[in-house]
Design a protein around this nucleic acid. Structure first.
Lengths: 341, 341
DNA sequence: ATTAGCACTCTCCATCATCGAGTGCTAATA
DNA sequence: TATTAGCACTCGATGATGGAGAGTGCTAAT
């Protein structure tokens, strides 16, 4: 589709633009990249690239700027070829990852910060989606007359805990029977499944005395209903130092994109199923607020089941090579970290 | 210190400035507030107010702007006199508060959002400081060969939970003995105290067999060491719509003030002991990053012990009357909410 | 003690000319 | 045929200029 020379020119323009914003002229391309061609020739090539939509001019007689489509071509190219990740970066990243805690939620908070520091963009990390976690066991602890602590375990730890009100007549022994029942029936299923199954099944079940069933149903409805995921976001102030965000309007866009964490959670949840590193460039983004930003994200897994996401949000003019490496390594690190526990 | 007329002029200027930024001139004061005085007289009074440092001119022949000292005088005045809170505001606020959840952490997240919506500034809420919570009971649940779930209860619910590795030889019965021991000795003390006492005391204690003590000490060290507080912050994007943040530099200041949550937590923790609503105006702020912002904060309590903070961060030119009312009511609401459980 | 009047100051805004970077096109060149 | 030098042209950025307007301080009159 693109001859070798055009490719190189496109990549040169992108490279230039990543290093400093502002349209790239034909002259600087010839200066900084040894093509052995004159500006005039470069101009012709650039005109061709504009024609097929990989570059555009902000206005007549300014230099060229890559379009989202241009970036897409570039990103596809660099992800296709074997990534020779800079050894310095890799070891630095590993060192930083080692330093973070082992508790997954604290880890994610730190990880988002680390991602932002390493990339100079915004680092995000989405906490594990508990509703697809496998129940290992449930514990019900009566700790006050009218309250019971419900604790759900997966194989990897406590996934949920909550205080639920309860009628004072229910004894710890009763609670043990409820817990035993749930453990027998449902351990090994995901919380989502349990939520769907449990209410119906309990209605029919007659092994427990009736008033208990009422309590049990209420408890289950409470604890198995979806808990909101948590998203950690870091590096906003750093982003503002970038020349890309020199006008207030863009900053406001950025903020509103970030601010509603619920939207963010839903969005990241939605892409969590896909394999490998995902890249959304500017207008490719499904979220309106992010049409002028790019997202590089990868999911981390527990076993083979993707449970959460880490990523970097930056200007479309971001250093994709760098970002991809960082995000990829971080996701892989979390995955192995989870499997070693 | 200030005669009645000067006071009124000062308040008029502040009122004007709160409604729209930009220096206020003598003419608009005479127009909007019926003093029955001419602009010239107002000018003289304003010159006096400038002399004592309550107003200042951005440049010769611009209007006047309140100084931090001026605001302080104003705020002291309005807090001293009986607050006649607008009935509309109060009921609206109450309605919104009722809508929020009852689980304290979810509540705080929503509350910070509510605070920002109501004030149009930034809403903050600091989660309860668990290290000064009173232990009601500890539970140790072995749920895998090499791991134990530790759950701390206060009178109000689960305050901490954590998975701690453990040697496989320790049985559930052993854990029960450890838990019983801790419950006997320490329930009713704050986690902070326990942390200080427990390690030393355990060393001496010989009721448990030795290898168990080692395990117990390790577990306690883990679970009783300080957990980071959590701070919920909302409304950044809204703030950017204010005319006060029209230049990037101020936005960056704002961001860096907000971004490092750890600093925020420490700061809010430090002021958490004081009674009533606290107000830091501009340069009064202990935090450098906040020297151009104001903070209105109040603590909420559990019984008589202050355990957390809610507040509003805005430009020094904020509507203090409004902010104080909102923050105050919210803190009081949380306090009663906690006491009814 | 207050006020009208007036000269003065300073910001804001639009206008205008200039500069320079970068282009597209054409004609010359290898 | 592909490349390049040369040139006219476009357009944004920059800075100077010059009212207009808002608001002051001062003085003299009430």
């Amino acid at each position: 589709m693109l001859d070798e020379r055009s490719r190189q020119v496109l990549f040169a323009v992108i490279d230039c633009y990543i290093n400093s914003p502002g349209p790239v002229g034909s002259r600087v391309v010839t200066k900084q990249y040894a093509f052995g061609l004159s500006p005039a020739t470069i101009r012709n090539i650039m005109a061709d690239l504009e024609e097929i939509g990989f570059l555009k001019q902000p206005h007549t007689s300014a230099g060229r700027v890559p379009t989202d489509t241009g970036y897409r071509y570039y990103v596809d190219a660099i992800t296709a070829e074997k990534q020779s990740l800079e050894s310095g970066l890799a070891s630095d990243l590993n060192r930083r990852l080692e330093l973070l805690g082992k508790d997954i939620n604290l880890f994610l908070d730190d990880a988002s910060r680390m991602l932002s520091v390493m990339s100079h963009y915004i680092g995000i990390a989405l906490s594990p989606n508990t509703s697809s976690a496998l129940l290992n066991r449930i514990d019900l602890i009566k700790y006050r007359d009218d309250q019971v602590a419900v604790i759900l375990f997966s194989d990897e730890g406590i996934i949920r805990n909550k205080i639920v009100p309860i009628s004072p007549e229910v004894t710890q022994a009763d609670l043990n029977r409820i817990a035993e029942y749930i453990n027998d029936r449902f351990s090994g299923s995901t919380l989502d499944e349990i939520k769907r199954l449990i209410l119906g099944e309990m209605m029919k079940e007659k092994v427990l005395c009736d008033s208990l069933i009422d309590e049990a149903i209420r408890i289950c409805r409470d604890i198995f209903s979806a808990a909101p995921g948590n998203v950690y976001i870091s590096g906003l102030s750093g982003m503002l130092s970038l020349p890309d965000f020199c006008d207030i309007a863009r900053i406001k866009d950025l903020m509103s994109a970030i601010e509603d964490k619920q939207i963010m959670v839903n969005f990241l949840d939605r892409i969590a199923d896909a394999e490998g590193t995902q890249i959304f460039i500017g207008s490719e983004n499904p979220l309106d607020e992010m049409k002028k930003l790019s997202l590089v994200a990868a999911t981390y897994k527990e076993g083979s089941r993707p449970i959460g996401t880490v990523g970097i949000i930056g200007p479309t003019r971001m250093n994709y090579q760098h970002a991809i490496t960082i995000v990829d390594m971080t996701a892989k690190y979390i995955t192995t970290m989870l499997s070693y526990r």
